[in-house]
C-alpha cells in the first residue's frame, strides 16, 4: 500500500532520509518511530505529497508520487486520511462543519454529508459536540475531531502524526482503540510517534528511523 524505494530527501542541504526502502502492506497497522527531529513528520508528508523526494520512488495506493501532476495531487489525498500533529481545525467552523469539510470537497450532497458526519461523530463519542467550536473542546476531544475528519471519507490509507502527543493514558487508549477499529475495516493505518508506550505489546510492525534511514523494523 505504501512503498518507499531508495528514497532520499533533503531540506536545503540537510539530509533527512538517505536511501530509505520499506513497504507497508495493505490492511496493515504499523508504527514509525524515532526521536524528535528524526523525520517522522517528513516521512508522512512524503506520503501525502506535501514534500517531494529528491531521489527514489514512492508508491501510495497505486499512485507513483514522483509522477503526480499538481492537479492530480488532490485525488491522491482523497485516498489518504491525515491526522495532523497540529490538528488543523478551523476555529470559525463547528465540529460538524470541520468534519463535513472532508466530504464537501467531494461535492457530496448535503443529506449524505449529514448522515455520514453524524455517524462518524457518534463513533468518536462526540455526537453531543457537533455544534461546538473546536477551541471549546479539550485536547483529547479535538484529537478525536481530527480523526473523525480523517476517517469520514473512508480513505484507503490513514496517517496519524503523534496522535497521542500530549494526551493522558486514558485518552491515548481511546484513540488507539479508534485506530484499531478503522484498521479492522480495511484501512491501512500508519502512526508516527516518539512514544514507545504506544506500540509496546501491540504485536504490530514498528519502523525505527535512525541516522537518516529506517534502521530496523521490529514488532511492538
Amino acid at each position: 500500500m505504501i512503498e518507499f524505494s531508495n528514497v532520499t530527501k533533503y531540506y536545503e542541504d540537510d539530509v533527512v532520509f538517505k536511501d530509505v526502502t520499506f513497504t507497508i502492506d495493505k490492511g496493515e497497522l504499523a508504527f514509525i518511530t524515532g526521536p524528535s527531529g528524526a523525520g517522522k513528520t517528513t516521512l508522512l508528508k512524503l506520503i501525502y505529497c506535501d514534500e517531494r523526494p529528491d531521489k527514489g520512488q514512492i508508491v501510495v495506493a497505486g499512485w507513483d508520487i514522483g509522477k503526480l501532476k499538481q492537479k492530480t495531487i488532490p485525488y491522491l489525498r482523497r485516498n489518504v486520511g491525515i491526522v495532523f500533529q497540529d490538528f488543523r481545525l478551523l476555529s470559525n467552523r463547528t465540529v460538524f462543519d470541520n468534519v463535513a469539510l472532508a466530504l464537501r470537497i467531494h461535492y457530496m450532497n448535503a443529506s449524505t454529508i449529514k448522515e455520514d458526519v453524524t455517524a462518524v461523530l457518534k463513533e468518536v463519542k462526540l455526537g453531543h459536540k457537533a455544534n461546538t467550536y473546536p477551541q471549546h473542546l479539550s485536547g483529547g476531544e479535538q484529537q478525536r475531531v481530527v480523526i473523525a475528519r480523517a476517517m469520514v471519507s473512508k480513505p484507503t490509507v490513514l496517517l496519524a502524526d503523534e496522535p497521542t502527543g500530549n494526551l493522558d493514558i486514558d485518552n491515548s487508549q481511546i484513540i488507539m482503540g479508534l485506530f484499531r477499529e478503522i484498521n479492522a475495516r480495511g484501512t491501512t493505518v500508519l502512526i508516527a510517534t516518539h512514544n514507545q508506550e504506544l506500540f509496546h505489546g501491540t504485536g504490530r510492525r514498528v519502523f525505527f528511523i535512525k541516522d537518516h534511514s529506517i534502521e530496523k523494523e521490529g514488532i511492538g
Partner: peptide, 14 residues
C-alpha cells in the same frame, strides 16, 4: 489562507 492550506491537504481541487 489557513483554511485554504487545510482544504488543499484534505484533497480539495483547485
Amino acid at each position: 489562507k489557513d483554511e485554504i492550506e487545510t482544504l488543499k491537504l484534505l484533497g480539495a481541487t483547485r
